[in-house]
Amino acid sequence: METKNLTCIGCPMGCALTVTYEPGNRDSVKVTGNTCKKGELYAIDEVTNPTRIVTGTIRVSNRKNLVASVKTASVIPKSKIFDVAHELMNISVEAPAKIGDVVVKDICGTGSDLVITRNVE
């Protein structure tokens, strides 16, 4: 069994959660310290499959002093945040580009596409 301390992000209460679990076994997760159901669900996800949307910027090859903003179109595993962040430094886009344009398909094997979030003229 492993133990983790988390802060719930469900509301401003920010309950201090203590989670005990067997890695890889969703049914084994026990949560204490939560004051509502949201806390339990959050903690289970956080110890079994934590995910995040990653946002950042990439260079615009034909513009100076301007970057394009991007995001992963869906959540990716938390463990891949830095892989994606590093990959962004190697990517560029050509202007014009518009919101929703896919820059990289399946970035870093996350299954999520990298898309533009700000129109570049």
Partner: peptide, 25 residues
Amino acid sequence: LNQCIHNGFGLHTFKEELTGPEYAE
């Protein structure tokens, strides 16, 4: 909003999480 490129905007208005520039657009 143009420089707030993180996500989390628009949950109440559009029922989805947008980045700042997307919300502005």
